[in-house]
Design a protein around this nucleic acid. Structure first.
Lengths: 170, 170
DNA sequence: AGGATAGGTCTACAATGGAGACCTTCTGCC
DNA sequence: GGCAGAAGGTCTCCATTGTAGACCTATCCT
């Protein structure tokens, strides 16, 4: 995880950006439906949405082609996920009056515009995957939680009993 | 080679990148557990993970502080999501031997490294939100699917009956 | 006529998520 | 001394979601 000083700076900037969004949501009275982030990410985060966006990034596809392309999705979920993406305007649905009718799905302009952020995330996932697997192995081996020394202070809100003389170990 | 995640790549380049990942997965026999993208994104996509990462981006926090910070999460889901994030190495858990014990959660280095891609996505969500809402309104008003002219060709795999003379309408 | 392809819907069952009761140890308060 | 409240969870129960797969209408190929 080589980190350069400039990475730290950008990390700080990201932190600031995200904290801003968070504060904005708090000011909306924690109303999830009016928070762009939650509203949008809840959909994008669903198991199949990103996968379908990636599949459609390659080329427009028809219903059964998508079904073949993503072998572990069920028809029901494919229909439903496509409907969601269509409703959000990320995917356009076109019906061709062949017999039987053909239905083609393709990314809209907005759908294409999410490819950038999505690629960034996918790149991160791929890059970090080995480290994540190591972390999982470590966790599953039981070497997880860190126990702080008795004289260190926890994050914040209770100083209430933090100073009591204490013998570690229960 | 530290390149900013998404700077000057064109949509076509994103498409190529994503299509590559997709092809790689196909070559793994569509095994989701060995696909970094699905493996990682399935976790990150869960309803609360991103929210907790954003909350912890601001500062380390303790269990009950997080509970107050994200008012619509239940204790159960908070525990579970934090465990997942900890297992993946994105969040570090530290126990302080106060009485009663305090437990502090903070982003690990890897957790900070996801802030970049995450900020990109959040930025996209915020920027596109008005358009998404318009798309939803349009969809809910029934003005959704586009019906192609009879002489246009669908995506690909059936040219089988595509040329039959057909009276549109349905 | 039988089977395949097209694009779905519908039903039954399993997994997941959420609300909230409950637990233990500690402190402060009256 | 006893009760309330905070801390950090776990546990149980119920509702929502997701999954598998049968089924449907129509057309075409053999």
């Amino acid at each position: 995880m080589t980190r350069s000083p400039s990475d730290n700076l950008t990390a700080a900037a990201h932190r600031a950006t995200l904290t801003d969004r968070y504060a904005a949501w708090r000011e909306l009275g924690y109303d999830a439906s009016r928070c762009p982030v939650r509203n949008v990410l809840d959909h994008l985060g669903s198991k199949w949405s990103t996968l379908l966006l990636i599949a459609l990034a390659e080329k427009p596809m028809r219903f059964n082609a998508l079904l073949r392309e993503v072998p572990d999705i069920s028809k029901r979920m494919l229909t439903q996920t496509l409907r969601d993406l269509e409703r959000d305007g990320l995917v356009a649905r076109r019906v061709f009056p062949t017999k039987p009718p053909s239905v083609e799905y393709r990314l809209s302009a907005m759908g294409e515009s999410v490819l950038g952020p999505l690629t960034a995330l996918v790149g991160w996932a791929e890059q970090q995957f080995p480290e994540i697997e190591r972390a999982r192995a470590r966790f599953d081996a039981g070497d997880a939680t860190e126990h702080a020394a008795a004289d260190e202070q926890p994050a914040a809100p209770t100083a209430r009993v933090a100073l009591a003389p204490v013998s570690a170990s229960g």
